[in-house]
């Protein structure tokens, strides 16, 4: 089985057909304090329909009582495997409407991958270790990925047209609609969208430490 780590998909894009004229879409995401916004999920949809992006097989591991990576972005129809590299048991769950499931993950006992066939955000938790939280963004967008350390994400070979750019992150306080942008690709030049948050992010979850791993 083809296994592709979700991290690889930061810059993934698939084009339905080779265009005659194609450009680049670049997104610059900035925090409220004007620092780069790293790790934001960017999805780009065209005004016209596109061929579905091919599903993938991704892995979302559990290492030191943490989901690794904390967020993955996958096309609709993809599968995700939860291998549990910890030496303790986990009970992974989602009650998100996009996909509800429950996985008892005991060490050394693999569980079949989970299939995600509807677009939306899936919030993951562990019924044993409440501090664990992870996210799967299932998207039907033509182009998607996460911003890098400079807060930048870009897609190349984008056919001419008008595109709708959306930004999402679990710690956002801004409304999602206020962060939507439109860009037009008119030729082989780069179309740039800047997304500036108005509000600070929620505090990030505290990192797992020796103290949290020794929990009662």
């Amino acid at each position: 089985m083809l296994r592709i780590s979700a991290g690889i998909f930061g810059f993934m894009m698939l084009c339905p057909a080779l265009p005659v004229l194609a450009g680049t879409i670049s997104v610059q995401a900035m925090l409220a304090n004007h620092e780069p916004f790293a790790g934001a999920v960017i999805t780009v949809r065209g005004e016209t329909s596109h061929a579905p992006v091919a599903p993938i097989s991704a892995i979302l591991d559990q290492i030191n009582l943490t989901f690794v990576p904390d967020i993955i972005v996958i096309p609709v129809g993809s599968t995700v495997e939860f291998p549990n590299s910890d030496s303790v048991s986990h009970q992974i769950y989602s009650f998100s409407p996009t996909k509800r499931f429950q996985l008892p993950l005991y060490h050394g006992k693999p569980y079949p991958p989970v299939h995600f066939d509807e677009a939306g955000v899936v919030t993951l938790g562990c019924n044993i270790h409440d501090r664990m939280v992870g996210y799967i963004v299932v998207t039907d967008a033509a182009y998607f990925g996460r911003t890098d350390a400079r807060g930048i994400w870009s897609a190349t070979n984008v056919p001419r047209g008008t595109y709708h750019v959306s930004l999402w992150h679990p710690l956002l306080r801004d409304s999602a609609a206020s962060l939507d942008r439109e860009v037009s690709v008119t030729g082989d030049e780069s179309a740039t969208a800047t997304v500036q948050l108005a509000q600070a992010l929620r505090p990030a979850p505290l990192p797992a430490t020796a103290r949290s791993r020794d929990a009662y």
Partner: peptide, 9 residues
């Protein structure tokens, strides 16, 4: 300790 349902456990 059942799995949460719609945010309730």
């Amino acid at each position: 300790r059942p799995y949460p349902i719609d945010g309730w456990r």
